[in-house]
């Protein structure tokens, strides 16, 4: 296996400032993307030439969606969820973004010596409840313990598989000019809920995580039409990362109306206070759908009939202008470029 060519990378400005991993490499933004593009893919190979939340495999004639995700969230418990249900929902959602019906999950724990058994118990109970509610069983697992100080309490990895129905082909490159951009609900709740708990910030009302399994919502959308073009769950990097990646992958432009974004008042207030941007904050139970215009109304109606899509709203469209670039129309009628966040969002000073 060839060594990665650190000098000859294709990006003109690859990773050059950092000789070590920094937190931003896990932030789901440009730094993460550079790791994948310049280190992981060249060495580990590029399965289907397309980055998505899950891989598509063909097994004995059945098309399968396969994905994995690791969870290192702090604190372990936050308003509206915990690392346990997050680990279940996150992988279910990754699988579902291929249009698949999730079949089974694996769970791997990395536990820190000294972790209270009661804490682990609460996490596993939350996992069990989430898996039961979603109807997706955990069928295999693994446990490792590391010395005290080597993990922050516990980390969880989940992986899962699902079966992709015949005729369903959902992936970023299918976004086409004219397609409609639909969000399944509010933006920013999960990230702000976790951050406010972590930083001990209080905003008068409690902002709860939106963590939820989305495979049921996806199935309801597919019942309208199998011709959904793209689905993404808007986790790290939020909506702006999801749309930026779709635009870059499909070489199309995407435009959205800021005034139509469903940002709850308390999230907007927290963002204003902290100097953050709600469109770049992680969600754990929200997807963005890119849908052919002829099906948009029916898909939107089906989403609104589902418990995890009640707040669904059309926010924009795909265009053949400015390929690869996402543009926001401001409430005043101006426009601005929305970029893939660099790494983690940094609160502004003032």
């Amino acid at each position: 296996m060839a060594d990665p060519d650190f000098d000859g990378w294709s990006c003109p400005l690859p990773l050059r400032r950092y000789e070590r991993i920094v937190m931003g490499h896990g932030g789901g933004g440009q730094l993460s993307a550079e790791l994948v593009e310049h280190l992981f893919l060249p060495i580990l190979g590029d399965h289907d030439g397309e980055m998505h939340d899950a891989a598509r495999l063909s097994l004995e004639g059945r098309d399968v969606s396969f994905s994995t995700d690791s969870y290192v969230v702090r604190p372990l418990f936050f308003p509206g969820g915990s690392i346990g249900d997050l680990a279940i929902h996150g992988t279910i959602n990754d699988i579902a973004m291929r249009g698949a019906e999730p079949v089974a999950l694996s769970v791997g724990f990395i536990l820190e010596e000294g972790l209270p058994m009661e804490t682990l118990g609460r996490v596993v109970e939350a996992m069990g409840a989430a898996a039961d509610a979603a109807g997706v069983p955990v069928v295999t697992g693994d446990t490792k313990v590391v010395d005290r100080g080597q993990a922050d309490g516990l980390y969880v990895n989940t992986a899962g598989i699902g079966v992709i129905p015949d005729g369903v082909d959902i992936r970023p490159r299918r976004a086409e000019p004219g397609d409609v951009v639909i969000l399944s609900g509010t933006l920013g709740q999960h990230g702000v809920a976790v951050m406010s708990k972590r930083e001990g910030l209080e905003f008068g009302t409690e902002i709860r995580s939106d963590s939820a399994p989305l495979h049921g919502l996806v199935a309801a959308m597919l019942a309208v039409t199998k011709d959904l073009h793209v689905l993404r769950d808007m986790t790290r990097g939020g909506m702006s990362a999801s749309l930026s990646e779709i635009a870059a992958s499909a070489k199309v432009g995407i435009e959205f109306e800021e005034a139509k974004l469903p940002i709850p008042g308390d999230v907007a207030a927290a963002c204003s206070f902290l100097g953050l941007d709600a469109i770049s904050i992680a969600n754990e139970g929200r997807l963005v759908a890119i849908v052919p215009p002829g099906h948009a109304d029916a898909v939107l109606a089906a989403m609104r009939d589902h418990e995890h899509g009640r707040g669904a709203v059309v926010v924009g469209s795909v265009t053949d202008e400015h390929p690869g670039v996402v543009v926001a129309r401001t409430p005043f009628g101006a426009s601005r470029v929305v970029d893939l966040p660099l790494g983690e969002q940094l609160p502004r000073i003032c």
Binding site: R17, R20, M23, L346, I349
Partner: peptide, 20 residues
Amino acid sequence: FGDMLRVPGSDEDLFGVKSG
């Protein structure tokens, strides 16, 4: 404050110091 962490000094930034 958060946005000072990415400001480059002569050689690196505070994120780099943190990772070191």
